[in-house]
Simulated assay, not measured.
Amino acid sequence: MFGSFEGLMRLCTKLQGTSLEMSTGTANFISGGLGSFAFWFMAIPADNVKNRMMAVPLSDARPTFRGTVRLIYTTIGLRGFFAGLTPCLLRAFPSNACAFYVYEGLMRGFGAEKTRH
C-alpha cells in the first residue's frame, strides 16, 4: 500500500503544469485511497482463506492452508477468493484516503517531511 501511495504521489507530481494539476493535499487523499485498493486486491484472497480456516469449529480437525485454497477453488472458483472485495474497497478508500491526507498534512505542517512541498 505504501509503495502504491508513493508511486501515485510521484505520478501526481508529473501532472504539475497540466490541466490535471492538483494540490498536495488532494494528491495525498486520492493516492491514499487508491493505494488501499492495491493493498486489498492483493490481500483479500489470503484474508478469505484465513477467515474460512478460522470459521471451522474447534471440535473439527484443523484445516490446512492448501486444503482451504483447494476447497474454495473447487466449490466457488476464483470468484471465491475475492468475496467481499466490493464492500471492503468502499470502506477502504475513504478511511485510508483520510488517514494519508491527515498524516501527510501533519508531517508538512510540522516541517517533518522535506521531500514534498
Rank of each mutant, 00 (worst) to 15 (best):
G32M: 03
G32I: 05
G32L: 02
G33Q: 01
G33C: 05
G33W: 01
G33Y: 02
L34N: 01
L34I: 10
L34C: 04
L34T: 01
G35I: 04
G35E: 03
G35R: 04
G35K: 01
S36K: 00
S36L: 05
F37H: 03
F37P: 02
F37G: 00
A38L: 00
A38T: 11
A38N: 02
F39G: 02
F39V: 08
F39M: 13
W40C: 03
W40E: 03
W40D: 00
W40R: 00
W40Q: 06
W40S: 00
F41P: 03
F41W: 09
M42A: 14
M42W: 09
M42V: 14
M42T: 10
M42D: 07
A43Q: 04
A43R: 02
A43M: 15
A43Y: 10
A43W: 07
A43K: 03
I44G: 01
I44L: 15
I44H: 01
I44S: 07
P45C: 07
P45F: 02
P45S: 08
P45I: 02
P45W: 04
A46W: 06
A46H: 09
D47Q: 14
D47S: 08
D47Y: 14
D47C: 10
D47H: 05
D47W: 11
N48P: 02
N48A: 03
N48K: 00
V49C: 05
V49S: 03
V49K: 07
V49P: 01
V49E: 02
V49G: 00
K50D: 12
K50Y: 13
K50C: 05
N51F: 09
N51Y: 03
N51A: 12
N51S: 12
R52H: 13
R52L: 08
R52G: 12
R52T: 09
R52N: 11
R52W: 04
R52C: 08
M53P: 00
M53R: 06
M53W: 11
M53L: 11
M54R: 13
A55E: 13
A55N: 15
A55I: 07
A55C: 04
V56N: 06
V56T: 12
V56P: 09
V56H: 07
P57D: 08
P57R: 06
L58V: 15
L58M: 10
S59C: 07
S59K: 08
S59W: 11
S59P: 05
S59R: 11
S59Y: 10
D60R: 12
D60V: 07
D60C: 11
D60P: 01
A61R: 12
A61D: 14
A61P: 05
A61I: 10
A61Y: 07
R62G: 03
R62T: 12
R62K: 13
R62L: 08
R62Y: 05
R62S: 14
P63S: 07
P63E: 09
P63N: 08
P63V: 08
P63G: 09
T64V: 12
F65V: 15
F65H: 06
F65W: 14
F65P: 05
F65Q: 04
F65I: 15
R66C: 03
G67A: 11
G67V: 09
G67H: 08
G67L: 09
G67I: 09
G67R: 05
G67N: 04
